[in-house]
Amino acid sequence: MDPFYWEATTRHQTPKAKQGKAQNSVERQFRKNPFAKALSTPIRQCTASRKRFPAFFLQDFNLIAHPETSEPWWVPHSLLWEQHTVAAQPVNAAGDEEFHDEHMDIAIEEEKADPTEGGPTVKTPATVRSKNAQPYGPSAYVLARQDLISGFTTKGSGYENLPRRLFGGSSSRYVKLGGKAIWREDMDSLVMHRMRQGIIEDLLYLSSLCIEDNRSYIKGCHSWDDVEYKPNRAVLWFGDDTEPNEAGKPKIQPGPFSTCNSQTANGAISMAVHNIPMLLGAQGTADVRQKSAMFADISLFLLSGRRTTDLQLKLWRLQGYLADFKRESEDDQP
């Protein structure tokens, strides 16, 4: 009956209070700034590098029991359990890969990498159903980098045994179970697909609000001169279908982490420019344009409004996941 006992034993089980309305102008500005929100996420440690980062830059993994064999499996928890805004039909956003996604019931029977994406062909006759499997034990974290996660199944990478040690310094109870857990051979592709799927669903949802309710979350721009420079905005570039310029060279396209900058009366403004074909792939970009009339004829769009903050976070996170920093540094050499 001791209230101090129950307070100590249940304090970590109490659900967090829902986020209320912003109390002041500083809080309102914070909630509209995707970069501030990314940096404010809880600090967690990457098992691979043993460095501590905001959770935004990490990918979390949890153990679940396979619904058929009851064997422990590693799954990217936050991506599989994510509650998307729109309950849309499955969108094939990764080339020839076939994923089934219906009411968060994720079944992956066989996956074939798109040759244009440069990925290996992987067949994994397995099923991971999120709604029937609860996560077990604490979360494990690694940097959200495709080259790192793919190294878990690459011989000679130095990380091939890391899936057995993902729990790091956790109790021996979890470490022993994690050493027996199954790590998917195509985990890096699965994570990429789920990131892309979330972006596609958000783009379709926000565009439907703009069309049906006359919202202004996404605004089409006929040229770069039409882009309005204001804080907490981002530019979406869907590709340039025009012919090469007079010199016979293709037009320059935005690279990873590109920005457009301008000097305004209120100071310098820098906005992120997201190369959608580079992030979503050719098929994913085509699906977005086919499913929403807003993206059919224009190649340049402006994201604005607090409701687009989560989408901007997803786009920025996918940028970091796919970026090849080694190749970019080599390209910069004279």
Rank of each mutant, 00 (worst) to 15 (best):
A268G: 10
I199N: 00
D310P: 07
Q29Y: 01
R196D: 01
Q45P: 05
S78H: 10
P138D: 08
Q89M: 01
P120R: 04
F53L: 14
P163V: 05
A107K: 12
L300G: 14
D331M: 10
Y205F: 04
T264M: 08
P163C: 03
K18N: 03
H77S: 13
A140K: 02
G248D: 04
A133W: 05
K314G: 04
Q59W: 04
A22D: 14
N245F: 11
K291A: 00
R307Q: 15
F99L: 00
Y136G: 13
D213R: 14
P42I: 08
S70D: 13
A140C: 15
R173K: 06
Q19N: 09
K291I: 00
I64E: 09
Q263G: 02
Q13V: 13
N62R: 13
Y5S: 14
Q19F: 05
S304K: 12
T259L: 05
N132S: 11
D297I: 03
H103D: 11
V142F: 06
G198S: 08
I108T: 09
K249G: 05
D188Q: 12
G137T: 04
I108R: 02
I182R: 10
S139M: 11
C260M: 15
G118M: 04
F56H: 12
M195A: 04
I149V: 15
S171C: 12
R31P: 05
I106G: 05
L209T: 03
E7H: 11
S49H: 07
W183D: 12
D213K: 15
R307W: 02
D332A: 15
L279S: 03
A234M: 04
S270V: 13
L148C: 12
F61C: 03
I269R: 09
V122C: 09
M271N: 12
P244E: 01
D60P: 08
Q19E: 14
L236F: 07
H66F: 01
N33V: 10
E111I: 15
F56E: 08
H193L: 11
P67V: 03
P138Q: 08
